[in-house]
Design a binder for these strands. Structure first.
Lengths: 191, 191
DNA sequence: GTCTATAGTTTGATAGAC
DNA sequence: GTCTATCAAACTATAGAC
């Protein structure tokens, strides 16, 4: 079950490198060097590069689920939970300015590659979408909860893309502030 | 000046392929096949792949400048011109759903590669940013024109990313409608 | 479970015939 | 200006010793 931990170390290294350099740009050599094993040893744990990708996606999927559950409890009420989502841009600002959003950039790359695991990567987006939708429903907006969820998700993606391009930390803070105001307005007005 | 047109055909083919497949994913073989020449003949026109990238970026820069000038005249007033910007998501919806935003996806990829032409690609973003900023200034918002420009640019990027991931045309239309409302509110309220 | 050695492709790039 | 032939390097992947 735990093997030697090598498999887990490969997944963690690949996860970081896929994020920082992109999937296509990351070779077995890169990952092997990061883990401290040889290229050949690789294939004992994974049959192909695509198999590593699937493991990385599954890893991220699980991590996202855990994060959303945490917000579920820490947030208190729907508005507080939605603010948790907005705040992640500030919390992860250094990584986002360096490499963009891990979900968005991977989905974009896999879509351009027309990669078979494209849909599985998108499921992480769906995880956020469904979670956000539920918060808006609980906030008294059952009629347009999905639209609001997609809107907030899009705002978050756009901020990540531009923060990455312009390396602008202050921009992130301003936009998150604007997002919080918007969330407050949506949650207060129970139309 | 026009040579044989081969150079231009290479740039156009590379431009399309870099957009559809990504820069890294596109090889000389792909471009050569699209143009109808051999790989070897390539190096008569361009010394390296990076040189083709620079030519593609310059091509896109020029095309963007021309588009913004067109909007400048067609739009009529600042609000109309800003709506031109918003509407481009609907106009180019098919390509955006297929490959995302050409500017955003290229900047993201080059940033992850830490490519030397990264900054030149970002200049296309700046082109939009400065143009949008001027429209907001003309609309009577000199104090926060740049913030508003970045906000609108980010919204556009986020919509492109999610439309690409979810393949959702209706989402684009809804978001553009919301953007138009927001533009109207900003341009009307001369605070 | 990890290693070395290597196969087989593809890549970006060069040289030289035509 | 376009071609063929070829290069060195990097890639994914496999085989087999230890």
């Amino acid at each position: 079950m735990r093997e030697n931990g090598t498999r887990e170390r490969i997944v963690e290294a690949a996860n970081a490198l896929f994020y920082q350099q992109g999937f296509e740009q990351t070779s077995f050599t890169h990952i092997a060097e990061a883990v401290g094993i040889t290229r050949g040893n690789f294939y004992y744990h994974f049959k192909s590069k695509d198999e590593i990708l699937d493991a990385v996606i599954a890893f991220r999927f699980g991590a996202t689920e855990a994060m959303l559950e945490r917000w579920e409890q820490v947030g208190g009420n729907p508005e507080g939970r939605l603010n948790c989502f907005a705040e992640i841009l500030v919390v992860n600002r250094a990584k986002i300015m360096g490499y963009g959003c891990p979900v968005g950039t991977l989905c974009t790359e896999l879509t351009k590659m027309n990669h078979q695991s494209r849909q599985e990567a998108n499921e992480i987006f769906s995880l956020f979408r469904v979670w956000l939708r539920r918060q808006f429903e609980l906030a008294g907006r059952p009629g347009d909860a999905d639209d609001l969820a997609m809107h907030l998700l899009a705002r978050s993606q756009g901020v990540a893309t531009l923060a990455n391009a312009f390396q602008d930390e202050e921009f992130i803070r301003k936009e998150v502030e604007t997002m919080r105001d918007w969330i407050k307005g949506v949650c207060t007005c129970l139309s």
